[in-house]
Structures are given as structure tokens and as C-alpha cells.
Design a protein around this nucleic acid. Structure first.
Ligand code: FES
Ligand code: FES
Lengths: 141, 141
DNA sequence: ACATACCTGACTAAAATGGTCAAGTTTAGA
DNA sequence: TCTAAACTTGACCATTTTAGTCAGGTATGT
């Protein structure tokens, strides 16, 4: 059970954006250099962030991206959903009456994984970009 | 971010074992049929569970597996660790001073992922096999 | 005009996943 | 003693996912 780079990069990039977009839009090139993330990969990620209205873009010279909301309004869950880093613990379709093994009842572990999913999503719903900004300036190491 | 089948199967199989091992050892063949898990795959999983002293085996005809501890003593974390379903959220090596990007400081999201890891592990540490047995008989759907 | 920066989609190498297959060894019971 | 049930081990493999790269665009400030 692990987090993928796409989700990690998305959050890193948005923290970067939150810090530097106060005056001018921030170019992906800058983020790429500061955070050590491939530019081409960043473009894929930002395309999704834009579709989900988390960032706004300006084209042309001196263009770049800015956040479309205040950092405190952007929850981790928004970001991760946007880049398809969904938390998926149950195997079966939740709405369906069928279990993951194709049987008519949910398997013995279904409720467990469902609880876990809620547990994790609660965590992501509570945390906002703002929390990360704060957290980072507090700790040096 | 998703759970793999190996972890899911391990838990399913152990719940099955907890229910049926009271008199005789339970054969993997039985578990395979009841839970709809490939026999060959179960063997891989139980090999690991045995190495981690979660189950004991008896060879030969009428052989099979039994739990080596009481269900309440077997935590989910024990099971998932045994089958290498580790929760891994940070990219970097935790002990190292270096960050995931190779830089000298931890990245801006490091603390976040570390918190998440703790959050999830706490969940797994609290839940035991016993909880699953109970939970399952309570709920029909 | 032209450099900068966003935009789009196709492509791909490498790793992880979810198994299968083959060839044993051990032991209960007929 | 013979045999079948059941554990044991290790190699193998197809598919999917991941983490990008690459090659082309299009828009726009100067
Ligand atoms: S995970 Fe939903 S039925 Fe097994
Ligand atoms: S995850 Fe540890 S430094 Fe980035």
C-alpha cells in the first residue's frame, strides 16, 4: 500500500505555488527546477489540476499558474482526487450487492476496508494546503 | 493509493481459519474453495504467514494450518507486515537526512506523509482478527 | 517576429501485481 | 507398505500500473 509519485508531486508543486504565486504567475519550469520534478510530467499533472479548478493558467511570456482558491480552501482530498490518486481499499463495487469474489454477499473483510477508507479520507479532508505551509516553516529538519 | 490482493487475501484466509480451525487443521484447499482464492497463490501467502509465526502447519493427510495465537492477539498490522503489504508513504529513506529529491533537506511534504503513515498504522494496530469475527456475525449485508 | 510558456496526445521502459506451473517432501490412513 | 492428501519451494509469466519521455502543437507579452 503506497502513495504514488503523481500525488506526491501534485502536493509538492502546489505548496511551491502557494509560496510564490503572490505577485506573478509561476511557470512550471520554475517549479520543475525548484522541486526537481520533470517538466513534462508536471504538465500532465497541472492539466488535471486545471480541469478540477484548483489552479488557473496564463499563457504566453511571463505566464504560468496561480492557485484558484486560498490555500486554506484547498484540501488534500481535492488535490489527490484531481490527479486520480484515489484511495481504493475495497475490491468490489460498493453500490453493488455482490462481493469481491462474485458471491451474493459481501466478503468477511469488506467492512474493515471500508472503515479504513473512511479513516484515510478523513485525514485528507482535514488537511489543507495552508497546513503544509505552516508546518514547513515550523520545522527545519 | 490502493490495497493489494495479497493483503486482502491474507486477512480473508485468516478469518476463515479462525472460524474453522477449532477442531482440525484447515487445508488450504478448503480455504481456496470457500473464499474463492487460487490455491497456488494461497500457498505463497501462507508460506509468509508461517515464517512470521502467525500460523502453524501440519503436513500430510488431514494436515493443514491453524492459528498460532488467539484471534485477539493477531493484529491486522501483524498480518499485513507478514505478507509485505507495508504502508509506505514517504519516498525518501526515513533515517537518512536527505530528502526524496536528493537534496539535503526533507521535502515540504515529508511530514505530511509521515503523519499519514502513523495514522494508518494506528488503525491496523488497533484491529485484531477477533474484531473481524465479531463484526461479520453482526452484519448481514 | 520570437521567445516563453502553456497544451495535447502518443509512446515507452521498468516495476509491481496476481497469479500459474513444476517438482518436490511429509505423513495419515487403508 | 503404498498411496493420496496436503504442505513446500522456487521458477516463471502475462497483464497492468507507474513514471515518465517525446513530439508536436497554440497562445501571448515584449
Ligand atoms: S471487498 Fe467488498 S466484498 Fe470483498
Ligand atoms: S518524502 Fe521524505 S523528503 Fe520527500
Amino acid at each position: 500500500m503506497k502513495l504514488t509519485s503523481k500525488g506526491r508531486y501534485a502536493v509538492m508543486a502546489l505548496v511551491d505555488l502557494a509560496r510564490f504565486d503572490t505577485i506573478n504567475p509561476v511557470s512550471l519550469r520554475d517549479i520543475s527546477l525548484r522541486q526537481g520534478i520533470s517538466l513534462d510530467y508536471l504538465e500532465q499533472i497541472f492539466s488535471k489540476l486545471k480541469k478540477n479548478q484548483i489552479v488557473k493558467s496564463t499563457r504566453g511570456t511571463q505566464g504560468g499558474y496561480i492557485l484558484s482558491k486560498k490555500p486554506i480552501e484547498i484540501k488534500l482530498s481535492n488535490i489527490l482526487n484531481a490527479v486520480d490518486e484515489k484511495v481504493k481499499t475495497v475490491q468490489c463495487k460498493k453500490e453493488s450487492k455482490k462481493g469481491c469474489n462474485g458471491k451474493a454477499t459481501k466478503c468477511v473483510t469488506h467492512n474493515l476496508w471500508d472503515e479504513l477508507e473512511t479513516h484515510i479520507n478523513t485525514f485528507f479532508d482535514k488537511k489543507s494546503l495552508q497546513d503544509l505551509l505552516k508546518n514547513n516553516s515550523e520545522r527545519v529538519n
